[in-house]
């Protein structure tokens, strides 16, 4: 007779009251599944706007259509899109643009989404930005110098200056919402 290793029994599965038996999906807000192909189509449209010089439209477009329901790959694609937009906006344009978005209808939600992308961008080791795109010079000369060898430093400094500008407008509340929100990007 086979001996049962009692240490390996998953007791949570046997307890009807256990948290392991909860349907966790009910705890999170509903998200609509998004196909990676759709994210790519969107990325194409956003790039079109970017090429046309409408950076604000591109940023809004990217932030309004967040693929919360996409898989890992789709989310990466959208992160790359957002990072690309952020890098193509001049530093002097950041604050006025954020101010305009904040004052528009549902603007604070868009800025929360932007904050999520800033944190996601900063957390990934290899910033998924197209390397041939020249980032705008920012004030973070130290970081640029340090990151020069890695190649990711430039992208990081762009994210940091966006972060600074964004906190000025959206306040610490938006940082708290990045940590709290169960809809991840």
């Amino acid at each position: 007779m086979a001996t049962i290793n009692y240490r390996t029994i998953d007791i949570d599965a046997l307890d009807p009251d256990s948290a392991a038996n909860f349907d966790l999906s009910s705890l999170a807000p509903d998200v609509v599944p998004v196909l990676t192909a759709d994210v790519q189509t969107l990325a194409g449209q956003v790039r079109q706007l970017l090429r046309g010089g409408d950076t604000e439209g591109a940023l809004r477009g990217a932030l309004e259509n967040v693929p919360y329901g996409a898989d890992q790959q789709g989310k990466e694609v959208h992160l790359a899109t957002v990072t690309e937009i952020l890098q193509s906006i001049r530093q002097s344009d950041m604050s006025p643009m954020l101010q305009r978005i904040y004052q528009s209808e549902g603007g604070s939600e868009l800025l929360d989404v932007l904050m999520k992308y800033l944190y996601k961008g900063m957390s990934s080791k290899q910033p998924s930005s197209s390397k041939n795109l020249s980032p705008q010079p920012t004030g973070f000369s130290q970081i640029q110098a340090r990151g020069g060898g890695e190649g990711g430093g430039q992208a990081m400094s762009v994210l940091l200056s966006w972060h600074e500008k964004l906190v000025e407008i959206a306040g610490p509340g938006s940082i708290v919402r990045v940590m709290t929100d169960r809809r991840t990007v």
């Binding site: 705890l27 999170a28 807000p29 939600e109 610490p172 509340g173 708290v176 919402r177 709290t180 929100d181 169960r182 809809r183």
Partner: peptide, 26 residues
């Protein structure tokens, strides 16, 4: 919207509305 955990709840004086504050600063 964010499903942030709730810190406080309260009914309006008439009891016909309820408010709650949660960790997403809302």
């Amino acid at each position: 919207r964010t499903a942030g955990w709730v810190h406080g709840v309260g009914f309006s004086p008439s009891g016909d509305a309820m408010a709650f504050v949660s960790h997403d600063s809302s």
